[in-house]
Write a protein that binds this DNA or RNA. Structure first.
Lengths: 147, 147
DNA sequence: TATTGTTATACTCTATAACTATA
DNA sequence: TATAGTTATAGAGTATAACAATA
């Protein structure tokens, strides 16, 4: 039983940048484990949640909202359409665009995934008081210039 | 000029998990751009900072401290050794182990990278007060069970 | 037998650039 | 000429397991 454990250097733990990377990795992994059983991955959940909140959207709008490449939306939309959670239909006003809309099954799935997301969040932040949790979210939103 | 911008759904911006993923991505990208000119990547900086703080370490100890796979340390150590920033020498007490130590050049590089890391951190958190920055770091350390 | 470091492999992810169809 | 969506490709990054040397 060798190797005393060495703590992370203060050069790393002293920076929010490093801490955010580690926290993001943990959150992503935990959420992924939790929603895999209902047939979603974090990315596809993000897409469904976006369509659930903003109504029918083009794939380009989805990409713009989530800050990802339009080409990445294609595969995610394929997967969700194949599983019956959303529909593609051509926008009559601009036939280049696909309007993405949730099916009833997709709406039920989002509701379920929302519950799971809240549970994972609650477990992740369990060391913090309610006030600290809200302050943490507020600070990160401010840095990211959101809300 | 179509597409009004749609904001991120509250299902995402309301969760620290999602915000941490986004913040981690941004921090990682900005830090990467900033240290590339001095021949480092975030990963190799983490390794150097660990050795700088804890003195000579085996590759396994480095992996354990950073929470990564020992196999990943091999390539990073190769790269840093090739560039003259650290040395591998066999541990006389256990000839399976390599003791990784910084060279004078490596020590200078870490000092430079530390300065850059502080600058990037300062820029990243510029929307926050000093108090909010410290609270943010404290909250993330607590969630990650560090320090 | 177990552990350290190494290597090789395969796999995922992503970025990019063509290509089509529509505008 | 520009845009939305699609496809294909290549590249980076990562995880995994097998292996050699040493304990």
């Amino acid at each position: 039983m060798p190797s005393h454990e060495h703590p992370l250097p203060q050069a790393l733990t002293g920076h929010a940048g490093y801490l955010a990377v580690r926290l993001g990795q943990r959150a992503q992994r935990q959420f992924e484990q939790a929603i895999l059983p209902i047939g979603l991955r974090p990315q596809t959940y993000d897409l469904l949640a976006t369509v659930a909140e903003h109504g029918p959207l083009s794939q380009r709008d989805i990409a713009g909202t989530l800050g990802i490449e339009p080409a990445r939306v294609v595969g995610m939309t394929d997967e969700l359409e194949r599983n019956g959670f959303l529909t593609r239909r051509v926008d009559p006003a601009d036939r280049r665009r696909n309007l993405i809309a949730l099916t009833p099954s997709g709406r039920r799935l989002v509701a379920k995934a929302d519950r799971i997301a809240r549970e994972v969040e609650d477990e992740l932040l369990s060391p913090l008081t309610a006030r600290m949790r809200e302050d943490l979210r507020t600070a990160m939103r401010r840095v990211l210039d959101l809300s």
